[in-house]
Computed example of a mutant assay.
Amino acid sequence: MLGAMPVRIHFTTEDMARTRFAESPRPFLELNIALRQLQERSHPTRFETWRRESLRRLSPKVQQLFDLIPSTGWSVGFLGYPAEDIGEALDQIRAMPAAHVRKDVEVWADRNRQRLVPAWTRSLGSDKGLLLELTDVAAHVHQRVIAPYQAGLDALSAADHALRRRQVAHGGLHALLSGLDPRHIKWKPPVLELTMASGADDDIHLSGRGLLLIPSVFGVASPVLGVSAEPQPYLTYPVRRDDTDLVLPPTETARTLSTVPDSLTTLLGHTRAIVLWTVAHHPGCTTTELAHHAGISPASASQHATVLRTAGLTSTVRNQNTAIHTTTSLGSSLLNTTA
């Protein structure tokens, strides 16, 4: 339930100079927000089909993440990294010192005193194998919940980025801050007021660090604030295409979160179907770009691209040492038929 009192972020001149906006959602942070949406029943037009399809594809082990990232309330700190790359975020968690994990879990358990904290979570700081298993579950969930829709999510992010650039060009940072999310974020210079889902009431001073503004497709209900994030605090805001709507229309989100056709997945396998789908939506992409958009490693992207090329569904040309992928007429026909 939305609280009546806001969180107030106080800006200095130095904070204003260092505030910037990200070009696209941070993948692991977006996964954190998406996991909350999976446990909700709100916004049915926007998310219900995606929820149903995603939950059907997930391993029962996803409950571990649900325990640590509930639909409301605090989530464990190390599961909210705003890293630019999903692989980077997963590697950071795998390499995290045990003392850091223990501290984050203790803080999380203290903040959730009114909830029943699962006993298994107390072992995260001392059992490296359990932490690695949890990271593998996070990778699995990203592959099933985010990666199938990456092309559409990228398109929404690009449209939002263009909007924010126009706001800055025409009205400076004041226009950008005023237009982030008028429902939950209000700019009253030099203070940014946030209405949080937790109902938190607090005064935050950025101390010259500024703020990283991060767009989110899944974070439509309320902003997410990372005060202690390094090297810079962050704040999420919902993506939208233009100034005429306060938020992206629900049908637009639902259309973006339509999955790769089941018939194509049955024919090619889940990951390979995503790779073919991604190449079709990003013609001329490099192997590195293909891996990024599909949410897989470059080695996996190269392997699947080779299989698809051998089958005549994609073609690959080389520009110096870079492989560039496009679909063939046969690949396009297959996509059109299964769709």
Rank of each mutant, 00 (worst) to 15 (best):
M1G: 13
A4R: 15
A4C: 10
A4L: 14
M5L: 14
P6N: 11
H10V: 13
H10Y: 07
H10S: 02
T12V: 07
D15L: 12
A17F: 06
R18N: 11
R20S: 11
A22T: 05
S24P: 00
P25G: 01
P25E: 09
R26G: 03
P27W: 00
F28L: 05
L29E: 01
L31C: 00
N32F: 10
L35I: 14
L38N: 07
Q39Y: 06
Q39W: 06
S42I: 06
S42G: 14
H43L: 14
F47L: 14
E48Q: 15
E53V: 07
L55T: 13
R56Y: 10
L58H: 12
S59R: 12
K61P: 06
L65W: 04
T72W: 08
G73W: 04
G80Q: 13
P82Y: 04
I86H: 01
G87P: 00
A89T: 00
D91N: 05
I93H: 04
R94V: 05
A95L: 10
A98R: 15
A99P: 02
V105Y: 00
V105L: 06
A109R: 14
D110L: 10
R111Y: 07
R111K: 14
Q114M: 05
A119Q: 12
T121N: 04
R122S: 14
R122M: 11
L124N: 02
S126H: 12
D127H: 04
G129S: 08
L130R: 15
L132Q: 15
L134T: 07
D136L: 04
D136G: 12
V137Y: 05
V137C: 02
A139H: 01
H140W: 09
V145R: 01
I146T: 11
A155N: 11
A155Q: 15
L156R: 08
S157Q: 08
A158I: 09
D160N: 15
A169L: 12
H170V: 10
H170I: 12
G171S: 09
L173Q: 08
L173E: 00
L173W: 07
L176K: 06
L177N: 05
L177D: 03
S178A: 15
R183G: 09
K188H: 13
V191I: 15
S198W: 04
D201C: 07
D201K: 12
D203P: 01
I204M: 00
G210E: 09
L212R: 08
L212I: 01
F218T: 01
G219N: 04
V224T: 14
P231D: 02
Q232K: 11
Q232F: 04
Y234F: 15
T236H: 08
T236A: 09
P238R: 03
P238M: 10
V239Y: 03
R240V: 03
L246G: 12
V247Y: 01
A254R: 11
L257I: 02
L257P: 04
P261D: 14
D262F: 11
T266D: 15
L267G: 02
I274P: 00
L276I: 09
A280E: 13
H282D: 02
P283I: 14
G284Q: 11
C285H: 03
L290N: 10
A291S: 09
H293W: 13
A294K: 00
G295H: 08
P298M: 04
A299F: 03
S302Q: 15
A305Q: 11
A311Y: 02
A311K: 15
S315Q: 14
T316N: 09
V317K: 10
V317G: 07
R318H: 15
N319L: 11
T322F: 04
A323V: 01
I324C: 05
H325M: 05
S329I: 09
N336A: 15
T338S: 10
